[in-house]
Nucleic acid binder design. Structure first.
Length: 282
DNA sequence: ATATCTGCCTGCTCGC
DNA sequence: TGCGAGCAGGCAGATA
């Protein structure tokens, strides 16, 4: 699933090759992939525009155009593939839901097996990303700010960290990895963390995400970068998808349970749940 | 305020 | 070998 590190990798790949490019055609093969506006308006808003800038916000890829913005959310199986052209010689790509053609001949294919991904064209960015929470890697999110986000709510840590309105960019894989790195139980209530635990969680978020970005993301099945290459971070995962395997820290068997309806992986030895909620800074 | 459920989707794995 | 059931999960929307 493309989360922050995967989307960051994709945005970087697009930035290098698309900035300055002009869109000459937009093709939609699965209309429901276009969230907003109508397909006809989507196409006419894109054709003729230039790509000014490309970045990531949460799990969204943002293409700033000379008029308006194209946003892409890959959800579960979405891919953005760049080809020099889709003329003869290119392998046929199944599950293409939409395509953009550029003046240089570049072709950007939105490929999405499960059709969960969404494309958006808007004039006001905040219409789509306005409700997103803090950027986990932002310098403005220090331990104190993270602590405020957690302590102002009384929620289980895992669903809270998955909530894009609180922190934008973490998904199931990196929440599990982060909680393991911080030594915190997924069911731990967010308002019971000590200052030390907040700092550990803050450091874990930074380190896990930065290492995953360096590794170009995690490919368990579907994720590919814009050149159709897999990531490398799957080899560095400590707990996600490793139920029954030994914890890298203590050797105890990793367990998998449902938390908030999601498959959740953790070490029962390193990530203990206190018998009763703690308060204050201990 | 928080937790839980449904629908959206399709490929894959499992058991018979 | 073939088939159906169940699973995977990000997010929006509805409900408890």
């Amino acid at each position: 699933m493309p989360e922050l590190p995967e989307v960051e990798t994709i945005a970087a790949g697009l930035r290098r090759r698309l900035e300055g490019e002009q869109i000459v055609a937009a093709e939609v093969y699965w209309p429901r992939s276009v969230a907003v506006p109508s397909v006809a308006e989507f196409v006419s808003a894109l054709v003729g525009r230039h790509v000014r800038e490309v970045w990531r916000r949460g799990k969204f890829v943002v293409l700033a155009l000379d008029a308006g913005y194209l946003l892409i959310h890959l959800r579960m199986t979405g891919r953005l593939l760049l080809h020099a052209s889709d003329e003869s010689g290119q392998p046929w790509e199944p599950y293409v839901r939409a395509r953009l053609r550029f003046a240089s001949g570049l072709v950007l294919s939105f490929v999405d097996v499960r059709k969960f991904g969404r494309l958006y064209v808007v004039n006001d960015l905040d219409e789509i990303v306005g409700s997103l929470g803090a950027e986990p890697l932002s310098a403005s999110l220090g331990p104190r700010e993270l602590g405020n986000l957690l302590r102002s709510r009384r929620r289980q840590l895992k669903p809270l960290l998955l909530d894009q309105r609180v922190l934008a960019g973490l998904g199931n894989i990196y929440v599990d990895e982060t909680l393991w790195a911080a030594g915190l139980h997924p069911l731990r209530r967010s308002d019971t963390l000590s200052d030390q635990e907040i700092e550990r969680l803050h450091r874990a978020i930074q380190e896990v995400l930065r290492q995953a970005v360096r590794n170009q993301g995690t490919t368990l099945r579907d994720y590919r970068n814009v050149a159709d290459q897999v990531g490398e971070h799957q080899a560095a995962l400590a707990v996600y998808g490793r139920a029954g395997e030994p914890c890298p820290r203590c050797g105890c068997a990793i367990v998998r349970e449902l938390v908030g309806g999601r498959g959740t992986h953790y070490c029962p030895h390193c990530q203990r749940l206190p018998p009763f909620p703690k308060r204050g800074s201990g």
